Amino acid sequence: MPIALNFTSVFSKDWEINFTQCMPNGYLKYTDLCNMLQLTAAAHSDMGGISFSDMQEFNQAWVLSKMRVEITELPKWRDIVTVTTWVNTLEKSRSVRALEMYVNGTKIIGSTTFWAVFNTERRRPEALALPYEHIELYPQRKPTQESFSKIIINPEKEVVFEKVVYLSDLDIVNHVNNVKYLEWCLDHVDEKSILNEKLNSFEMNFMKELSLKDTVVIHENFSEESTIFSITKEDKTCYALQLNWK
């Protein structure tokens, strides 16, 4: 698609929270929150001429490498939320994108995301083949109080679950969708902590892609301040998640 005539480097989109996206307490699921943020980023990319369809002409796609989310409060069923996004940095094969969520003009969530350009045939990173000079960058406009951190995986972690990757776990890039990793881990968190909205922030690192029929092991290490999950395949870490509690 060509660059939209009404393209702007700062983009906003409204969403209504529906009941399928909510937990039993009526508040937005953390997985659906991540989906909504990424769908907004995708809509902005569509307008800017660097969408999945545009990139597939060169066998390329954006894949998420890191994501940090800071939460003041969650939106609830029937809320109209506004998600605003812009690009902090964009060079060659990588980009940092900012996202913020508002309800009635009040910011409730901020997220910093790190993306890599991925060749979907070679299954490796490479430089973006499309022009992007029309996108204005805002390196000083930060959506989160903290930037990415290194998630430290304790070697004494506990094995909590073993899983086989099914077709329902895959996305259009033909690997496990990034939100699926989060879903797998949250299923092993005490439900009271989730339903009582004790989560202050969380951060995810994606290290190796997972494919259909891969067998993975989910590990957990718990403390009062945070819970760290890691997912391994053949003893190699593919994903790490840090949940920071209030």
Rank of each mutant, 00 (worst) to 15 (best):
L182T: 01
S226K: 12
E70A: 04
N59G: 03
T227P: 07
V96L: 13
K29Q: 13
F7N: 04
V69T: 09
L74V: 03
Y102H: 15
F118L: 01
T215K: 14
S12K: 13
E156S: 11
I50T: 05
N244H: 09
E70G: 02
L37E: 07
E126P: 00
L241A: 01
D187C: 08
I228T: 10
V189G: 02
S12E: 13
M204K: 00
A61G: 09
E146D: 14
I228K: 03
I50S: 01
V117N: 05
Q242E: 14
F229A: 04
L210W: 04
Y166Q: 15
N104T: 10
Y102E: 13
W77P: 06
I151E: 05
E100N: 09
I228Y: 01
P2E: 15
K76M: 15
L243G: 05
E91L: 13
N88Q: 14
V96F: 10
N35P: 00
L167Q: 10
F114N: 13
Y166L: 15
Q56Y: 10
S95Y: 00
E146W: 09
E100L: 04
L195S: 06
I3A: 00
K198Q: 10
T84C: 07
W15Q: 08
F19C: 13
T85V: 11
M1S: 13
V81M: 00
M23Y: 09
S201N: 10
S211G: 07
K192D: 14
E136S: 12
F11H: 08
M23C: 08
L37G: 02
N178C: 06
L128A: 05
V164P: 01
N244W: 02
N6C: 03
K208P: 01
F52E: 08
D169K: 07
F52Y: 15
H175F: 08
